[in-house]
Design a protein around this nucleic acid. Sequence first.
RNA 1: GGUGGGUUCGUAUAACGGCUAGUACUCAAGAUUUUCAUUCUUGCAAUAGGAGUUCGAUUCUCCUACCCACUACCA
Length: 489
Amino acid sequence: MGGVRTALYNYLYAKQNGGDFILRIEDTDSNRFVPGAEQYIIEALRWCGIYPDEGVDAEGKVVETPSARHPHAPYRQSQRRGIYRQYAEQLVAAGAAYYAFDTAEELEKARSAAESRGETFIYNHLTRGALRNSLTLPEEEVKRLLEERTDWTVRFRMPEGRVVEMDDLIRGHISVDTSTLDDKVLWKRADELPTYHLANIVDDHLMEITEVIRGEEWLPSLPLHYLLYEAFGWQDSQPRFAHLPLLLKPVGNGKLSKRDGDKLGFPVFPLRWTSPTGETSRGYREDGYFPDAFVNLLAMLGWNPGTEQEIFSLDELVQAFSLDKVGKSGAKFNPDKAKWYNREYLRMRSDAELAALWMPMLAERGLHPDLAFVERVVALIKERATFVQDFWTIAHYLFVAPTEFVPKDVDKFYKPEIYAAALEAMEHSDADSLEGYVRDHGMPMGKVMNCIRLALSGAASGLGISDILHFIGHEEGLRRMRFLKEAIG
RNA sequence: GGUGGGUUCGUAUAACGGCUAGUACUCAAGAUUUUCAUUCUUGCAAUAGGAGUUCGAUUCUCCUACCCACUACCA
């Protein structure tokens, strides 16, 4: 959800300003490759109605837009491998970065040693002088290690005691002292791939990105990114940054995780997702949410239009969206409000459209009613439903006679005198005259009517009796009256 | 621990430094309905705490508290 919201805000911002929305796959961690994840992202965006102007499509090919522009291909960082090394080395040559030869074990040792002293190990101006890198080793040995070993990295040489002044479109001015920051790895010889920081800056520059709208978790690395733009000499074309507040779990504290959804009974994924380990998480699509409702509720999590309007189509969002109306604090997700949104969107759908969505579900139950009949049913019940899936629960007895009766309602309304009156009323009237007959003959309205409803629907609550009768017909109504007696009596 | 960010009803949020702090969801009550749901009406409910600036602070400044993120050869 959080990822979709970030993509949505980027899309809205781009479209509002006549820009392009580019989908770039940042797959620079070969250890964390998840098969199917990329396809999933593309399919989820499509479901939401978000189509990239540039990027990769579901088949892994460059997106073909009407204008057929794809000047920045390839869009998958794993396919851009070749271009990053030169940039990393450019920084080394400029003195902004250096080669580091520390092995994972050595760093681990340094970390635990610091920990035992009650400190935290940071690879920075304080420690780099005592570690194995091109700043401490003789030139000859550096040259040798570079050729002999394949596990070295390029690290950013974070300056000491510099205050980086930054601007965020949402948070305003921020300044950070670089002394507290560390020498981040920029490039790994082992897989010839950059880390996020280098790849992001290089690609944003190459792809002419003008705005970076991303999650708040990136705010702490913003100084590094500023410094990187500076080291490359790209300050003039540096994009503007906006860090979005996080999506938080509905109860307690902390960011929304997939566990919360499982526990509290709502999806945290746009589409159903099955992880490589076979674990499945439910999706908004499969749960019956309409894509436009999902987009709408997501847009309102962290942003507001400044008016009291709550229902927005994607196009309206493009018009109304504004980064300065995005909040600064994390937004707790409210599942009840999400359902409310879907209910609103369900009501806006036409009877014909809802009937068309319901037909296949009826077919799964072996039912093949007239489309016109289904449309009439939908018109009657749509106000009572949140999802199309609810239709069956609400109106199943319009298609199939009840075979079970709610025991509590039976106890209350299936009594000899009441049943006799109810049967008499049914035998001497039709759908339209039933209520009048009951009243005119002095029968207890509530009891008799509920007894009839029990027979017709299996419970004492639900649709109006006259409505039910109109759908199933008087004969079927009488048959169900008799069946109630057989089943219970 | 360090650094950064954040803090208005339970939740999402509104309020040029100036009305009785508004709206929506949830919840409760009432009306409507043959029942339930819908619909309508009403109600409950908040500026984290403390200083300061000011005629006046939800809004600006500082301190405290709490929450979150980051602190990886992950993004």
